[in-house]
Design a protein around this nucleic acid. Structure first.
Lengths: 330, 330
DNA sequence: TTGTAAGCGTTATCAC
DNA sequence: GTGATAACGCTTACAA
């Protein structure tokens, strides 16, 4: 038999409402009794019944995370981090890998207090729903009716170029996905272009379309770079963790030393960047920070009345590692 | 305000206990009233309250899936499929990506009816817990106290070799991870060895250690194969989806035609195999079948008393596609 | 500071 | 067939 507050009450010799108060750490109960009750509860192996609690409190302290496309590793890392971030809060998290509709159903059923939604294109259907949520994705230029957490991709590229510029680089090439509808990728490219302009490096500008976001896309793109006539880059910015991994591999195989011959800076600020063949300099919002922000955002959304600041753009960080250094003196 | 059965009762002009019965499709209520009540419920947008239901029924119809390592893609596909498989049942699924302990807590909190656990090495701590579960992983040779769903890896390799043998191949090389503690990988290698022996191909046996399970590991392994002296293989078996992808790429790049010069068969039977550069012949338990079996197993575990058949080994299927064909006539 | 009791939305057991 | 009514385990006024 599972033990309830009534059982505890009997053993502790108090009424069960007192037990309830003690368990909820209410100031209305004397310290001594509180301690005693807590001790008894502990001994009896009491586990609160969420369903009962929920029935009266009308809330679950649970957040649902909607993640329809589980097959991208950077997001996997983010999910893990979000999950961790919740451990320091009074909320816990459940995850659904179903379609938005199915996920919504599940979450409604469990009566989650809020939702985190991954994805760029968000169905309007969601908006009219009463349960609070935040979206992690590209905010774009248009207005939204729902809150979006986004990274400042422009600022990222700006920092990357600045870093390389200050090291002395001028020939800085960007390798990333270009011919796509993915707003995130496009923002990266734009950011690169702006930054190059800002530093007066327009004539050195070179964008290589990796065609995709995977390891191999970076690997093959290097070929294109090397085959290009004219000036060779002294530095490359890779558009994603996977792409940069491929770039690094390809350079190494060709006997091109990183960073002595070519410096490499990668988008995506995740811990895995520290353990690449050559530890990778990277830019982006560190994934743990990102996770914290997302968690914070949804909790605030739930707990506070005000609906300010729909779009939140997070500032990126540049983490310098061995893959970038000054260019070889010509 | 959310609508409850009492609200429905008022509108429909019946008692709320009748509403409850009607909603649960009880035979104790007249067809006519049932229809009326259902209609009213529909119109009022009634959504049952899981917490209340759970409080009295002592069950949730929810299964928890524990998935601590979200960063392997084959498992991602499996999770998606399991999630889908649950749609045809009365259960729904929630997912935790936390450690076993944290996940257990969450699941206890929600009072899930059962759990599916991914992983090979399973802590004993689990075993003494009252909530039913099944494990998906390698069953190995020793006894277990808990039910395991596993694929028959030996049979897979046997089918792969048989397929190639019957096409006329003799020089069949296996590329996979070898120097590892991962029981699953070792079983594959063992299976290959047994199968080669069975078909009298021992002298053609060749195992290439890919060192890892990723795309690039397959890609580089091809180099080793080609550099080997002596007979070149006319067929290769790749140890995983990713490995085989790398193998395929490497062969294509070297101008080696698949399947004309070399046939390729891959482990892992997932839909993605149909969309590789050359559609891939593969072996393994089809992921949808696997999902169905897992779902079936946990439900049975929950609903039936008998505790038979702890280990369940699933039979693999060979799906023939374009990447394998008869060897070129010498 | 503690206890009593109402109520959260259901299901299930009776009686009518 | 249908309707009262007692649970389920908990929180929370309100009373003592």
């Amino acid at each position: 038999m599972t033990v309830t507050i009534k059982d505890i009450a009997k053993v502790a010799g108090v009424s069960y409402s007192t037990v309830s108060k003690a368990l909820n750490n209410s100031p209305l109960v004397k310290e001594a009794t509180k301690r005693k009750i807590l001790k008894v509860a502990e001994e009896m192996g009491y586990e609160p019944n969420l369903a009962a609690k929920q029935l009266v409190r009308k809330r679950t302290d649970v957040i649902g995370l909607m993640w329809p496309t589980i097959e991208r590793i950077v997001l996997a890392t983010l999910v893990t981090n979000i999950s961790k971030a919740f451990e320091n809060t009074s909320y816990s998290m459940i995850l659904s890998v179903d379609s938005q509709e199915t996920a919504m159903e599940t979450f409604k059923k469990f009566q989650v207090d809020g939702m985190i939604i991954f994805g760029e294109s968000n169905e309007v259907s969601i908006t009219q729903d009463p349960i609070p949520f935040v979206v992690y994705g590209v905010s774009g230029k248009n207005e939204t009716s729902y809150p979006i957490i986004d990274a400042n991709h422009e600022a990222s590229m700006q920092k990357a170029v600045k870093h390389l510029y200050e090291l002395g680089h001028r020939n800085i090439t960007y390798i990333g996905q270009f011919d796509t509808k993915d707003a995130l990728q496009l923002e990266k490219v734009e950011g690169y272009e702006k930054a190059m302009k800002q530093f007066g490096l327009e004539k050195y500008k070179q964008i290589i379309d990796s065609k995709g976001l995977n390891w191999f896309d970076g690997y093959t793109a290097v070929e294109k770079v090397l085959q290009n006539e004219g000036q060779q880059p002294t530095a490359i910015i890779g558009g994603s963790y996977d792409i940069s991994g491929g770039i690094m591999r390809a350079l190494t195989e060709k006997g091109i030393s990183i960073p002595n011959d070519i410096s490499l800076v990668s988008y995506d600020n995740i811990p895995q960047m520290a353990t690449t063949e050559v530890p990778m300099t990277c830019i982006g919002v560190p994934v743990d920070v990102l996770a914290e922000e997302i968690v914070h955002a949804i909790i605030e959304r739930i707990e506070s009345e005000e609906r300010v600041e729909l779009v939140k753009k997070l500032s990126p960080t540049l983490t310098a590692r061995e893959s970038s250094g000054p260019p070889r003196i010509q």
